[in-house]
Design a protein around this nucleic acid. Structure first.
Length: 539
DNA sequence: TCTGGCGTTGTTCCC
DNA sequence: GGGGAACAACGCCAG
């Protein structure tokens, strides 16, 4: 009886530019082995990781699409449900496996998982072939080009990839697949449904982004047609709160590998070459390089997803307040822009990069002073494109824990959104309770006189929450905390904390109703600032 | 070892 | 309303 070759899909849910898949097919052809495409619904992800229902759906979409594409070539996808170790222990014998191929992965869990499988394969004399195709470059190659050091700035990173040159060209999809010669029950190992997985479907939102390679390629082609838009693309100029996404929304497809970053990269090059165009870091190519940068740092930094033991992460003593975290998570902070963004995230699974900045800054150094690790977990649950390296890196960035250190630049939960959506149409879309508020008050509805609140059918504090913190109060407090934390001093030394406890000042009343009158609020802050100034003088 | 330049995406104020 | 400076001031990196 002849053996079989398995290509193990994990990320890289595509046929195009898939070197490990091509290797499996070549081996099967050469050795006259059967070929099996396998995906394992890893119980670790079901039990340990919190994956929201929208991303489950995206994954199942992607698997169905992959299955359909494989069927077009006379094969199919086998979806097995268990730990990879258990699965391979069983099928190596039952399916008489001689070779295994997969795409390499840089995340800690994947690394240890793959090490286990490598050992298992070796003990059964199964040859293993791994290829790097989830990123433009092999992260090790970049570290090597930097003499073994981790590049810590984008500029540095860019200089390294310039030295290396363009990434390899993408490979074509296979045009045929050797037929299976083993008989495996055709009804077994089908792509499951959400019901099969017993996923709680109460949070299932509108199906805006269908997963899979077919959709990814369609979306890419659609975006590539807009040549002028691509040439002029500059990330900071795109809007975080447009009613339709102002960027490509290819990130979920990149996360699952429904699309190859190398294909994306080279297609972009062919569009911009010979034309006037924007450059990294703000251009679209620049966006792919940011992804690459964070993948590189994430692949070699121990405890990248934690504060403790993470050498690149500033040790900032964040608070742990489950109520504040929950209010932020559920979009009940009382700041409409923040709440609208969090609502879009929770229901649709995608928000604009700058919207992520706003809410991440708000949760951490800007307003709520909660740990960025808590934010990572919420994004990891809700985002379709939740990607371990990128998620952790961006949260460190926004909390000014690493990469970015100009902590005095704080996003205003009121001002920032106004720049690109003066009328607050975005807020009205995601927070329909507020849709009758006049634009004048849409970013600060608590300031609207009661008669206007009544006319809008929404009383603040009753139908929509009052702000859980006063931005004008917590912002300067947090700035000082950041300054102390950067100096390695405890934040209890903060003049604000001391002055507050001494004079029972507003700092201690974070959940207290925010004053209706701007005037009195301003007076309050002035009083506070005076008391802090005199406190500092005494020191 | 020190120093000056600089950093994808802040806000406010002023012209 | 668009553009530029002030605000206050960090760490990384090249020289």
């Amino acid at each position: 009886m002849s053996g079989s070759v398995i290509h193990w899909f994990r990320k890289g849910l595509r046929l195009h530019d898939n070197p490990a898949l091509l290797k499996a097919l070549a081996l099967a052809e050469e050795k006259k082995h059967a070929f099996y495409a396998v995906f394992i619904l890893d119980t670790w992800f079901v039990k340990q990781a919190t994956v929201g229902v929208n991303r489950w759906r995206f994954l199942l979409d992607s698997l169905s699409d992959l299955d359909a594409s494989l069927k077009n070539l006379g094969s199919r996808l086998y979806v097995l449900r268990d730990s990879p170790e258990n699965v391979f222990n069983t099928i190596i014998k039952d399916w008489n496996v001689k070779a295994l191929t997969f795409e390499s992965d840089t995340e800690p869990y994947a690394k240890s998982r793959d090490e286990t499988i490598r050992k298992l394969a070796k003990s059964h004399h199964v040859e293993v072939h791994e290829y790097c195709s989830h990123t433009l470059y092999n992260p090790n190659e970049i570290i090597q080009a930097n003499n073994g050091a981790t590049p810590m700035t984008y500029q540095k990173f860019e200089s390294l990839v310039k030295k290396i040159g363009h990434p390899k060209s993408p490979l074509d999809s296979p045009i045929s697949i050797p037929s299976n010669i083993h008989s495996i029950d055709g009804k077994k190992y089908l792509v499951p449904t959400l019901d099969d997985l017993e996923v709680d479907q109460t949070g299932l939102g509108p199906h805006l982004y269908r997963g899979g390679e077919t959709e990814a390629l369609k979306r890419l082609e659609m975006k590539l047609k807009r040549q002028e838009w691509i040439c002029k693309f500059s990330k900071p100029q795109t809007s975080p709160n447009s009613l339709e996404p102002s960027t490509t929304v290819l990130s979920p497809y990149l996360k699952f590998g429904c699309i190859s970053p190398r294909l994306f990269y080279h297609k972009l090059l062919s569009v911009i070459s010979g034309k006037k165009h924007t450059e990294p870091p703000t251009s679209l190519v620049g966006q792919l390089l940011w992804r690459e940068f964070f993948y590189t740092v994430g692949s070699v930094t121990p405890n990248f997803d934690q504060i403790q033991g993470n050498k690149i992460c500033k040790q900032i003593p964040w608070s742990d307040d489950p109520e504040l975290l929950e209010a932020w998570k559920l979009g009940k902070t009382g700041y409409p822009f923040i709440d609208a963004v969090m609502t879009q995230l929770r229901t649709e699974g995608w928000i604009h990069h700058l919207a992520r900045h706003s809410v991440a800054c708000f949760l951490t150094r800007g307003d709520l002073w909660q740990s960025w690790v808590a934010g990572v977990k919420v994004f990891d649950e809700y985002l379709l494109d939740a990607d371990w390296s990128l998620n952790n890196a961006n949260w460190m960035w926004l909390s000014a824990s690493s990469f970015f250190y100009q902590f005095q630049r704080v996003y205003s939960p009121i001002v920032f959104g106004k720049k690109t959506d003066k009328n607050g149409d975005y807020i009205k879309k995601y927070l329909p309770k507020l849709k009758k508020f006049p634009s004048e008050y849409i970013y600060e509805p608590w300031k609207a006189p009661l008669n206007i609140q009544k006319a809008a059918g929404c009383i603040i504090g009753q139908d929509y929450p009052k702000p859980i913190v006063d931005h004008d109060v917590v912002r300067p407090r947090n700035l000082e905390r950041m300054s102390l934390a950067y100096k390695g001093l405890p934040i209890e030394n903060s003049a604000y904390s001391a002055a507050a406890s001494k004079e029972d000042d507003i700092n201690t009343k974070k959940r207290k109703v925010v004053s209706d009158s701007t005037k009195s609020k301003k007076q309050k802050i002035e009083r506070k600032q005076k008391s802090v100034a005199s406190f500092l003088k005494k020191k």
